[in-house]
Simulated assay, not measured.
Amino acid sequence: MKKIVFYVLCVMEVICLACVYLAGGMAGAYAWSFAVFVLAPLSLIVALVQVIALLVRKLKKKSLKWNLMLLIISLIGAYPITILLGISSITYPTKADKKEEIAAVMPVKDGITFGGVNYKTHAIWPSECYAYDILVEPYDIESNDLTKFGIYNADVVAPVSGTIIGLENSEEDILPNTDEFKSQLGNYVFIKIDRTGTFMILAHLEKNSIKVTVGDHITEGEYIGKVGNSGTTSEPHLHIQHQRNNPLQMVFPTCSEGLPIKFKK
């Protein structure tokens, strides 16, 4: 049985690595999520069982070879559990072709970007591997007053031309550095981009500030709403991400295939 479990774990780990780091695309996105939510917990259980088995077999002076091998491979498979525990530094690899990059205008005046390829703010998920958090000075300050943050209540304009396919406009702001959020995105706008047919997400907007409706066609630079502090956010900022998949159709949003953004000068 130990040999069977060992080989099964080896095969699953190799397939996941090949899909993520070689194939990419949707195969990589789903393999990454499988590794985090299924393979890692399963491997952790196997590892714990092997620790106990090793102690028992050592006391009985039996061979430890296969138990040790199984422990090592299960610990490797369990490593992605650190993502769920919030202690991981691994991020999803950015593998999109350069031609998939969308040119966008900066949606906030004087915006400062954190994210993309060079600074992966929160790219532990495939959908966000090219995402940006946009802030305005001052930011990262010790204050519970939202108005002290430079980007709070700033106007947000459409970074691209496209059609509004979804939005949320009713969620209240939360205080900085709290976890009292009601949803991941808070108030958001989903845009289907004219030029590429791909999709853009703008999130953490201010309640009742969104002035577009589903079905509206917007042009680049057109007013959309204001930056708030709704959703999963430690301080006011605008989250922007570009992805291949329609966010309204994804059962598991984190499995969407993230695509790059380049802001126009």
Rank of each mutant, 00 (worst) to 15 (best):
K95C: 02
V49Y: 13
L185G: 12
W66P: 00
S127G: 02
G186Y: 15
N229Q: 10
S234G: 11
S89E: 10
Q50L: 06
H237E: 14
G25N: 14
P247S: 13
V117L: 05
A40W: 03
V117M: 05
I81Q: 08
P159K: 04
K265D: 15
S170W: 04
A154E: 01
I4P: 01
K61E: 14
P41S: 09
N144L: 03
L202E: 07
D110P: 02
F199L: 10
H242W: 13
V8F: 08
I193H: 07
S161P: 01
L64S: 00
G28S: 08
L42F: 15
F149S: 02
I124D: 11
A35S: 15
S230I: 10
L167A: 01
A103L: 10
P176A: 03
E206M: 12
K182V: 09
A27D: 01
L70K: 03
I112E: 12
W66L: 12
D133P: 03
P260Q: 01
H242M: 15
M12D: 14
M200L: 15
L59K: 09
M200W: 08
E206D: 12
G225K: 06
V56T: 04
L185F: 12
K226N: 05
I218G: 00
H237W: 06
V160K: 09
V20E: 09
H204Y: 09
H242K: 14
A158Q: 03
K109Q: 13
E180W: 04
L59T: 01
S234I: 01
C19M: 12
Q50I: 03
K3G: 01
H122P: 00
V36L: 09
L64F: 00
L146Q: 09
P126L: 05
A131L: 04
L39D: 10
P236H: 05
Y132P: 00
V156M: 03
A47Y: 02
V5F: 04
D173Q: 06
A131F: 06
I224Q: 01
E100K: 04
W125R: 10
F6N: 11
P260K: 00
A158D: 03
V189Q: 05
C10D: 04
L22I: 15
F114I: 12
L39F: 06
S43A: 15
S43D: 10
E220H: 06
Y21W: 14
P126K: 11
V49L: 13
L146N: 13
